[in-house]
Nucleic acid binder design. Structure first.
Length: 307
DNA sequence: CGAATTTGACCCGCGC
DNA sequence: GCGCGGGTCAAATTCG
């Protein structure tokens, strides 16, 4: 199906950009990847408010800490960014009090039980399940107990300029749904971390403003190390297929001031030189684990938003 | 053959 | 109270 964009085409004519791909495969096209990242919260506070903490040696590492609401809140030291109603990630508008949503939100609350891999024993009483037609009744069962919508935990959104939708960030994800979203012509894909004990979810969608940009929203925190990155000795973003990563803020408001970075042919992150030297100098120094690499295209920005 | 993806249906929360 | 939109499930399908 790698060739048939028609698969997702039914939604809104997602077209060629919505290329289906097995995330593990087609690792090609790594060259020229450039990734910037920046705390979005900078827009709320001073010029410095959004500096990504030095505790993280890589994006993946960063993600792991960042996805912890408490950690994130501490690092941001500023009000989280709440997207405007029309924003690409506007669905995440539920304001979350960082310190109130921490406990149990990441792993426990994620367990919706009734999944393929992990059949839920409880509620098994009614077992009309053997019969195929009972699919709906099962869903109804689900509604009775399990499918309580948990309050949204912290969500972190990255805007990534990439030809592929699903970026390899070092974790294994399984797609469990796809939906057309209201304010976008492109469908949104839903992924869940395949690790049994990990309930982290990921939403991937194309930016309405810039179809070449993929907006990835992480929800929850990984309860395990990255299988791929760990193998390499350090956790890092595997930005397979990434051309550019932009700040959502940039996409929407054309702000300035990014932390430029890039990836080498192995997908490892570099800090990149930028036209805004001061920003680079300042922020790159806070990323002990990142190497400064000159000569990679500065045409990329990556950022996160606490939504 | 096992695993991952696709896809349509269902459920729920929220706004009107 | 109703309808819309977002999020999730799971059977069917596809792929490695």
């Amino acid at each position: 199906m790698s060739g048939s964009a028609a698969a997702g085409g039914e939604d809104h004519g997602a077209g060629q950009l919505y290329g289906n791909h097995r995330h593990a495969a087609d690792g090609g096209d790594v060259l020229g990847n450039n990734v910037f990242f920046q705390s979005h919260s900078a827009c709320a506070g001073g010029d410095d408010g959004g500096v990504i903490p030095s505790t993280y040696s890589s994006i993946t590492d960063y993600l792991q800490g960042l996805l912890d609401p408490a950690e994130l809140a501490r690092h941001l030291d500023a009000p989280p960014y709440f997207p405007a109603p029309g924003d690409v990630i506007g669905e995440a508008a539920t304001p979350v009090t960082p310190n109130s949503s921490t406990s149990g939100e990441a792993t426990g609350a994620e367990s919706h039980g009734c999944k393929r891999g992990s059949p839920s024993p409880e509620e098994g009483d009614e077992d009309g399940s053997a019969d195929h037609g009972s699919c709906r009744s099962e869903k109804k069962k689900m509604k009775e107990g399990k499918r309580e919508k948990k309050p949204r935990g912290s969500r972190v959104a990255f805007a990534t300029k990439s030809a592929v939708d699903h970026l390899d960030d070092g974790y294994r994800w399984r797609k469990y749904g796809q939906k057309a979203v209201k304010n976008s012509s492109f469908p949104r894909s839903y992924y869940r971390c395949t690790a049994a004990q990990c309930g982290v979810k990921k939403l991937v969608e194309r930016s309405q403003q810039d179809p070449s940009t993929v907006v990835t929203t992480y929800e929850g925190r990984h309860a395990h190390p990255s299988p791929i990155a760990t193998h390499r000795g350090s956790r890092m973003l595997m930005a397979t297929g990434v051309d550019t990563v932009y700040s959502l803020d940039v996409l929407q408001h054309q702000h300035h001031g990014f932390f430029p970075a890039g990836t080498d042919v192995y997908g490892r992150m570099y800090a990149l030189p930028s036209t805004d030297a001061s920003v680079v100098a300042h922020r790159s120094s806070e990323y002990g684990g990142m190497q400064v690499h000159a000569g990679v295209l500065p045409d990329a920005v990556m950022s996160y938003e606490h939504v």
